[in-house]
């Protein structure tokens, strides 16, 4: 009987690529997958570039992002001001480049915190059922029905501390419930699958079932939740600044966009205060979404496609399928 079971001589496609050592740097298997998938490779490049720009921001921003200058106000993009200036005369290029730091940090932290909350609470509620589920459900419903702006107003009245930390907490508090409901739903449909029962019968502890067996089946959805929160966090960033929760002296994309909107710049034909920060935000989110495509492949072995190894340069020039 044994010799008739199909023996596999070709490469097992679904096995993750073994971590390779590139010039003494160990690259983990999942990262390799992300790099090989053309979509996520593009996404990583985009995000990498934006992060790099944010990191070297102090070096490349020639003017003070918050600087006033009546003479330089409302200027279209030029060699002197690459992205033009605001109505106050601040250099938009500097604002975008320096603002990237705060925006990326805010999006990352708020996204991570909200997603972590949504994941832990949603999945635990689904798996435990009973009282735990009722309590979490109640919390979710409460947080979903509370309108965010009044909540923010109330919270900002109570919080003494200002700055990034507060903003991150508030954003996470407002945004976790939506995703928690969705993740709970997915976990509910997974928890009655036989492999979860089998894990229980094997003697796995609840904690290991939830995080070791259940959650790995939900990574795609969790990653998508992160991207959504990231995006919303960046958009509502300005509103929070306005409410006084933020640090007025620091700039970010949301703030730049906010001022662009309130000053009716478009009505006056000034497109640059919108386009550049908006494009920065859009490109960042687009990069994240492209990475999501690769994450699908990492987390679900059934989606993995066989891609022969070849140099990065060759792939860029010739394309992946050639």
């Amino acid at each position: 009987m044994s010799q008739l079971e199909p023996t596999v001589l070709e490469l097992p496609v679904a096995a993750p690529p073994r971590a390779r050592t590139l010039r003494r740097v160990r690259v983990p298997g999942w990262l390799l997958l992300l790099l090989r998938n053309p979509k996520s490779r593009t996404g990583l490049l985009m995000i990498g570039t934006i992060v790099l720009v944010a990191l070297i921001a102090p070096l490349i921003s020639v003017s003070d992002p918050n600087g006033f200058s009546i003479t330089a106000a409302r200027q279209a993009p030029s060699w002197h001001h690459l992205f033009g200036t605001t109505d106050q005369g601040s250099d938009i290029f500097s604002q975008v480049v320096v603002g990237a730091r705060r925006s990326l940090l805010l999006g990352l932290a708020a996204g991570a915190l909200a997603t972590a909350l949504a994941t832990v609470l949603g999945i635990t509620a689904a798996y435990s059922g009973g009282v735990v589920d009722d309590v979490v459900n109640f919390l979710i419903n409460v947080f979903l029905t509370i309108p965010p702006i009044p909540l923010l107003v109330v919270v900002s009245g109570y919080l003494k501390a200002r700055g990034m930390g507060t903003m991150i907490l508030v954003l996470a508090a407002v945004l976790w419930a939506f995703e928690a409901r969705i993740l709970r739903g997915q976990a509910l449909s997974l928890k009655n699958r036989d492999f979860i029962h089998a894990a229980k019968v094997s003697g796995e502890s609840t904690w290991r079932i939830v995080f070791g067996e259940l959650m790995p089946n939900m990574i795609s959805r969790i990653a998508a939740a992160f991207v959504l929160v990231f995006y919303i966090a960046l958009l509502t960033d300005a509103g929070l600044e306005f409410l006084g929760l933020g640090d007025q002296s620091k700039t970010s994309w949301g703030v730049t966009l906010y001022w662009a909107q309130t000053n009716s710049t478009v009505l006056q034909g000034e497109w640059w205060p919108f386009l550049f920060p908006g494009a920065a935000l859009a490109l960042t989110v687009l990069g994240l979404v492209l990475v999501l495509a690769g994450i699908d492949e990492v987390s679900n072995p059934r989606l993995r496609v066989f891609r022969p190894k070849r140099g990065v340069l060759r792939t860029l020039l010739v394309g992946a399928r050639a």
Binding site: R193, D194, F195, H197, A198, N300
Partner: peptide, 17 residues
């Protein structure tokens, strides 16, 4: 005391080896 389930695919975690 151990158990074997009816659905061979459902009783295995699809993302685990």
């Amino acid at each position: 005391v151990q158990m074997i389930f009816q659905d061979p695919f459902g009783s295995l975690n699809p993302v685990k080896t």
